[in-house]
Design a protein around this nucleic acid. Sequence first.
DNA 1: CCTTGAAAGTGACGCTGCGTCATTTTGTAT
DNA 2: ATACAAAATGACGCAGCGTCACTTTCAAGG
Lengths: 258, 258
Amino acid sequence: MIHIKEVAKQTQITVRTLRYYDQIGLLSAPSKTEGGHRLYSEEELKKLQYIHFFKRMGYKLQEIKDMLSDPEWDWSSGLKSQLAFILEEQRRLRSMELSMRELINGIAVEGGNEPLAVQKLIQLSNQHKKGLPDLKEHQLKAKEPDLWAKLPKMNGEDPDSLEWIALLGQIKRLIKGDPASSKVQNIIRRMAEKQGEQFGDEEQFVNELWEIRKSPKQSEQLGLYPIEQEVLDFMEQAFQIYLSAADSRISKEETDEH
Amino acid sequence: MIHIKEVAKQTQITVRTLRYYDQIGLLSAPSKTEGGHRLYSEEELKKLQYIHFFKRMGYKLQEIKDMLSDPEWDWSSGLKSQLAFILEEQRRLRSMELSMRELINGIAVEGGNEPLAVQKLIQLSNQHKKGLPDLKEHQLKAKEPDLWAKLPKMNGEDPDSLEWIALLGQIKRLIKGDPASSKVQNIIRRMAEKQGEQFGDEEQFVNELWEIRKSPKQSEQLGLYPIEQEVLDFMEQAFQIYLSAADSRISKEETDEH
DNA sequence: CCTTGAAAGTGACGCTGCGTCATTTTGTAT
DNA sequence: ATACAAAATGACGCAGCGTCACTTTCAAGG
């Protein structure tokens, strides 16, 4: 017969908890001293291990009490349903994680305008819930699923997505300035490089995507992170400048070669 | 100005919850009718979206209240620590999942003797916690880490592990019978086949593993699922019979060829 | 203007699993 | 016998509402 503090030491369960288990009839002390001090036996230690194990598995004390007292308890279905519950919780946490990453990246894009980032995210998730039945299977998504999957994701943690996010964030900071400035042009060049690396010769796809981008409604319905119209215009402007500059470099090189 | 029920409808948040948020000062109604009925504006709807979003992210109401009221709130570290918390929770659930699978498979092996399966699992996890510093890096584990990783796992869900578990469970049911019986021999043959498929010519490894298996202490220290001595003996016996039967088949075939 | 039924209000208890006082008894060593 | 550790009981607290129970207010119809 061991007293309560010994049990606590051996099982790492607090004295308070042991008394509570006694109180709710989950694990009662088999005997007491004349003065009323609880005395436990090895039997209780084992039972306590059981209880502790199932509690760590996420069972509620009442459930554990039921399964210990009921010799007809259906282990098979009980364990499986608990496993299903655990898997469901994992999915829930996974989606929480993705939303948090999306928010963190969104704040980076918005250059520290947190409320705006939160607002856009909420807007997106509302959109997502609505189901958008007509455009859900957009031709582009259906036609090129593999390319679509390669698009940078706001909830991603891969280096590619992160750089896109960083580039976009920088553009937004420079929007008041000159689209021909070297800072802007360097960013645009980097974007063009990445686009080339990731989508290569799929120009058709990239063009269509850009068209969608320029329509806020379509972008939203397809779950693309919302970008303000002026930012898009600025980027297009800068891109035109970039292209013509590249052209003139080429013709200059051609001239040089002569 | 909208009534509380309208807000509830639009946001999917119950009236009770809205009143509670008002009570704790998280979201108070900006005005009331003469009679004291709450009236909300669009402003509150937005704020409610915020609150709802962060609650889904696992924040406590008090934390949300703090971050909404404090304009100096540190978004960056706040979001990152919450993300870390979410990741930690995912790890916790993952280990819960593995333990549950281990238990479910253990029950299959023990042929429905649930308390025994639970007991063995608890024993294993206790062992695991102790750290077992001397044998933790057993030579076999260190020498052949890739082979070690291919061993069937009690917490696995792959078909190979499941078949090993099933075979072991059947052996345990037949332990009272004759090791030379066809039922037992068929199981042993299947085990030999699988061993051949999975470990091929690594006889050295398999032999060492079997030696460890025959020592309960070593098995336990290496985290192998405990198998009773008599089961091991029975299996060895049956295996010997299987081998000699195979030998005699071969010599018979040789004889036939002459 | 009055009635009526729906909707809104307040207040209080319940749930989970203990942590944390506060106060009283019991056990044990000197 | 005394003193001090350890045990016991009892009660409140927490988080986030759900769920009565009871009262008051709102808006529409007669």
